[in-house]
Structure formats: C-alpha cells, structure tokens
C-alpha cells in the first residue's frame, strides 16, 4: 500500500470534520418470540469510534443493521443528531459486494451522491481510490483483485459520499491475518482524517481494542460491558495495556 499519495485532494471533497451522533432509547428487536435485543440504552457521541463485540448470534449485527436502516426496531427508538439519509450514513459489509460487471472505478462511483455529475464523478472516485492505495487498479474488473483489495474498494465506495457515520459489519472478518492488520491501519488513518462516527461490529477482541475509543460487549441481548479505551494512537500491537483490557473483555464473555 502506498502511504497516503494525495490526501489533500481527497479531503478537499469532504466537509470539515463532523460525525453523526446516535442515541438508542430502550431499543428492542424480536424475531417472532426470539428476543435478539432488549431495552438497549446507549449514546454514541459524534465522531466516536465504537466497537461492538460479542459471541455469534448475540445480536451485534442486528444492532448495526438497525443503525444502518436495514431493519426496523420492534420497540424503542433510534435518534440521530442530524440528517441520516443514505449519503450521511454508509455501511460496509462483511463481503465486498462489488458489482462484478463494473470496473473498479465505477464501483466506487456507486457511493457518490447522484448530484455529482460527469468528469467530477471520475475525479472524486479516483481521489478516494488513491486514498485506499488502489489508484492504479481503477480500470480493472473486480474479479482480478485479491480479497483485501476488493474490501479496500468497498471501503472507498463507502467513503465516497463523505459519510458522517460509517457502520462496519465485520468488514475484515474474511481477510487473512496480515491483510487484516494492514486494513486496520488504513481504517484508523482515514477515520483520524475525517472524524466520522464509526461503529464497528467484530468478533475479534484485539481488533476492537486496536481501533476503538470504546468497546461494547453485547451478551444475551444486552450491553454487558461498556469499556472506554483511553490509549494513545497508534496503539502498538501486543502491548501490556491492550492485553490487560483484552483479558478483561474475554473474562466477561466466558468467565463465571
């Protein structure tokens, strides 16, 4: 990955740092008689990087789908402190979900607002592709890219509209360990530049601790642990402090 080839050209398109805050009020979601989420009360301030961890099927992805508007709550409310239309709120999926019949550049353009036309569309998409280090792959078909490259294109697509809130649904879960670390660095760098609100769902506790300001542990449909991670960035991997926090979260998950 090239190190930030032209950050200025990209950030020029994005308004000044502004995130979108979210508040959950007694939020619940049931599927039939199964209560996946119950009475969640939470406040995520603008610009915060929140990681949601938990066992498979604990409802963490459901929570994210509610935030992204892909699902509606059964009870309670979800409040945003501003407009939360498609362009302000973007989701990045676990799979890249690129259109295989469009070139990489056109795939990134999917994320641009419809109001951006003509040459400016290409220009902006190119700038974002450069940001994720794939400027030279703009004219390729997605099928020739590696898994990590596809996910970087998906990230570029998610960022194209300059979202105020980015929902990340285990986006790095399917990548190999080294590519994942590289991608974590990329996500952190872009988040530091743009300061959108980020909600990352992950099953990887160390990933949550490497990236997030705050880690939420969901268990049995409730928030079982709400932990602030006040460590300076970039956080060195394998530090004693991270290990201590990881131990605490894992103990909460599996302990007694």
């Amino acid at each position: 990955m090239t190190a930030a080839p032209s950050p200025a050209s990209f950030t020029a398109f994005v308004d000044a740092a502004r995130g979108l805050g979210v508040r959950f009020e007694r939020l619940g979601r049931h599927f039939g008689t199964k209560r996946v989420l119950e009475n969640i009360d939470l406040s995520i301030p603008a610009g915060q990087f929140v990681a949601i961890v938990g066992k498979s099927g604990c409802g963490k992805s459901t929570l994210l789908r509610l935030v992204a508007g892909l699902d509606q709550p059964s009870s309670g409310r979800l409040l945003f402190d501003g407009a939360h239309d498609g362009e302000a709120l973007r989701i990045m999926f676990q799979e890249p979900r690129l259109l295989p019949w469009e070139r990489v550049l056109a795939n990134v353009e999917v994320g641009l607002p419809a109001t951006v036309k003509g040459e400016e569309r290409h220009e902006r998409a190119r700038a974002i592709l450069a940001e994720v280090g794939l400027a030279d792959r703009a004219d390729e078909w997605p099928s020739v890219l590696s898994g990590g490259q596809k996910q970087r294109v998906a990230l570029a697509r998610a960022l194209a509209s300059g979202p105020r809130l980015l929902a990340l649904d285990e986006p790095l879960g399917a990548l190999d360990a080294l590519t994942r670390i590289e991608m974590q660095g990329l996500v952190e760098r872009i988040w530091l530049e743009q300061r959108f609100t980020a909600i990352l769902v992950t099953h990887d506790v160390s990933e949550a601790l490497a990236l997030a300001d705050r880690v939420l542990l969901i268990d049995g449909g409730r928030v079982a642990l709400d932990l602030d991670v006040e460590l300076p960035r970039p956080r060195p991997r394998g530090s004693a402090e991270l290990a201590r926090l990881e131990g605490r979260i894992l103990q909460q998950l599996f302990g007694s």
Binding site: L70, G86, E87, R90, I91, F93, L99, V110, G111
Partner: peptide
Amino acid sequence: PQLIEMGRVYGM
C-alpha cells in the same frame, strides 16, 4: 440478493 441490498442502501 446481497448486491441488491447493497444497491438499495447505497441509494439506487
């Protein structure tokens, strides 16, 4: 269907 969902949430 995943691509269709993507298209919907990306405002197509």
